[in-house]
Write a protein that binds this DNA or RNA. Structure first.
Lengths: 216, 216
DNA sequence: TAGATTGTTAATCGATTAACAATC
DNA sequence: TAGATTGTTAATCGATTAACAATC
């Protein structure tokens, strides 16, 4: 039912990054019993500009706000969850079952975002065969066949920086279309494959810089 | 020795996010035996613009490149590690020892970035008292005293979205100056406290959007 | 020297914000 | 109706890129 109007609006990365915060805020207001909400209210609570909020909402949903009233919260939630893909499950494999890899496998929160890690791959003999959180760790040699057979399109890279490009190449050979990369490395991949970098190193640098500044 | 010139250049968030990738690339070239590197080379390998690379390098290090030659790799590495704070250890506490919290505690890679999680706090009776990766899980009631006594300035939030603001308030009361927030929530905190959001939900949305686009 | 590369100043591009008419 | 809020068009702001003189 959200398919009525397919809006080809291009959403900027910045805008997309704001979406989860909108969604969370909307859910809180719904919880509190609110039915409608104005862009102004959202903007104030998230410390954003209200025009920006309106533009963002317009970009991802076909819902129109009513002047003098605002937006229907439930409609916005439905549209946004749909847009963010929280409703349809994405199966993924993970490569690199070191401490970070194991950590991500054991994290149960991804299912809320529609991500399901179905298998992990590693070459460490000690870890292969283990099952964490219902997810089996297998040798990397089995990855290509596995991904192709189950038509997996998402790969998560949690190997050390030095091996990240090799892991990437393996995933590409396995037919993966999108990569979630936790290694602080630029990966070379074809244009049509999405590489989404999770830049924890940068986050930590931000914290470090702040502390340095405070204690100067 | 890097203190000769304190450059008050304001580095944009975007620039800071590129730093870890520069650093990794520099280390790889050093490993390969290179002594100098040009901005052009860096730019090509990371798919960036070379002027941008030069500006970024100038912003975080006092090193000048030599025309016709480039930059001394080792000098750049030293300056960048210094700038990113990888050399000095930051002690941190974590609040919320659920699956994500435990995952982060058990991850051994943060020490490379200078982060040391010294304690975790949770109210779940079942988990308090546990020790993971040398890190003890304690009741939240002990947090304020603990942080003040050990002068901890960094707090990591890994509680569910609904409890994130309460966790934030707890951390603020404990004298924390910088917060690394894994909950997809905007936190209200004083201006002088840094809130660094780790936006995994947004990353996943990016992947989801890509897949939707491919299979359309 | 000639060519490559640097660092800086100016132009471009895109995101954010301000201004304002339309509407409930 | 008057006031609040919407959506859009124009202005502003900041980051990226292009142009170019300086230098090894």
């Amino acid at each position: 039912m959200n398919q009525q109007k397919r809006n080809p609006v291009i959403v900027s990365v910045q805008a997309l990054q704001r979406m989860p915060y909108y969604l969370q805020l909307l859910k809180e207001h719904k919880q509190a019993g609110d039915i409608v909400i104005s862009a102004k209210t959202i903007a104030t609570e998230l410390r954003l500009n209200d025009v920006q909020v309106r533009k963002d909402l317009a970009a991802v949903s076909s819902i129109k706000g009513k002047p003098n009233t605002g937006f229907e919260i439930q409609d916005l939630i439905d549209n946004m969850e749909d847009y963010l893909g929280y409703n349809n499950v994405m199966d993924a494999v993970l490569i690199g079952a070191g401490s970070l890899g194991k950590a991500l496998i054991s994290y149960k929160g991804f299912e809320n975002y529609g991500l399901n890690i179905v298998a992990a791959f590693d070459n460490e003999v000690g870890t292969t065969g283990d099952v964490i959180n219902g997810c089996r760790i297998r040798p990397v040699s089995e990855m290509e066949e596995f991904c192709k057979r189950l038509r997996i399109h998402i790969g998560i890279i949690t190997v050390p920086a030095q091996s990240a490009q090799a892991a990437c190449d393996n995933l590409l050979a396995s037919g993966i279309l999108a990569i979630w990369n936790f290694a602080p490395v630029h990966l070379n991949a074809p244009e049509n494959v999405l590489v989404q970098n999770e830049n924890m190193a940068a986050s930590l640098a931000m914290l470090s810089r702040k502390l340095k500044e405070m204690t100067r």
